[in-house]
Computed example of a mutant assay.
Amino acid sequence: MLRWAESVLAVLTEAGVEGERRVVALRGLLSYVIGAIQLEHLGALSGPGTTAITELSPAEFPHMTETARDARNVGADQEFLGGLALLLDGLGV
């Protein structure tokens, strides 16, 4: 874990991220990676939970049901890399 963090900090530093912003960026990236791993193992988009959400009442959960239908077409790599790209774009890295 320390070597991973050191590598990430080197990249952030090279990108001009410093001080408290670098602390928050490191923690945000670490949280994203841990969260993505947990989601893939505990609730993958290809799993039964996504199917169950598509079967909810669209009148009561219009956004959840539509998003779950779309989610069935998102692979694990696309989910992880797409989310990571969004996070990095937000950091301006």
Rank of each mutant, 00 (worst) to 15 (best):
R22M: 08
L30S: 04
G16Q: 08
L12S: 02
A52W: 14
V74R: 04
V93C: 13
L29Q: 00
A76N: 09
E55I: 05
L12A: 12
L29F: 04
A85L: 10
F80Y: 11
D70K: 04
L42Y: 05
V17Q: 02
T50F: 08
L39K: 04
L30V: 06
R72W: 06
G28E: 06
G92R: 12
A59C: 07
G82A: 04
G83E: 02
G35I: 07
Q38K: 05
H41K: 11
S46P: 03
G90M: 12
L84Q: 03
A25R: 00
S7G: 14
A52E: 11
L26S: 02
L30T: 04
F80L: 06
V8H: 02
A25L: 06
L29E: 00
L29C: 04
G35E: 02
A85H: 07
M1T: 11
R69S: 06
A10W: 11
S46H: 08
F80N: 03
M1L: 11
P58A: 07
S31C: 00
L56W: 09
A85D: 13
L81V: 06
L81Q: 08
L81F: 12
Q38F: 08
M64I: 08
I53D: 03
L81Y: 10
V33P: 00
A25F: 03
V17L: 11
S31W: 01
D89G: 13
T51Q: 14
G47N: 10
Q78N: 12
Q78E: 15
L42P: 01
Q38D: 07
G35R: 00
N73E: 15
G35H: 02
G43T: 07
A59I: 11
L84P: 00
E60P: 05
E60N: 11
T65K: 03
E79G: 04
R3W: 10
L42R: 14
A76F: 11
V33D: 00
T67M: 14
L45N: 14
P62W: 06
L56S: 10
H63Y: 15
A52T: 03
L12N: 11
L81S: 05
A44L: 09
G75R: 15
T51G: 06
R72N: 04
G16T: 08
L86T: 13
G43A: 15
P58R: 11
I34P: 00
G49W: 08
S57W: 10
R3V: 14
A52H: 06
E66P: 00
G92L: 12
V23N: 04
L88D: 05
G19H: 04
V11T: 12
F61W: 09
V8Y: 03
G75H: 13
G19T: 03
D77W: 09
M64S: 14
I37E: 12
G43N: 11
G90L: 14
I37P: 00
H63F: 10
Q38N: 08
L39T: 04
A44I: 07
E20G: 01
G19K: 05
N73V: 11
G19L: 04
Y32R: 03
G43E: 03
E6L: 10
T50G: 08
P62V: 12
P48E: 15
S57G: 07
M64V: 06
L86H: 09
L45I: 07
V93Y: 09
E6P: 01
M1I: 05
A25Q: 05
V23R: 09
L88Q: 08
G92C: 12
L42Q: 15
R21A: 14
I37K: 03
G82Q: 09
L88A: 10
R69F: 01
G35D: 03
V93S: 05
S31L: 07
A59E: 15
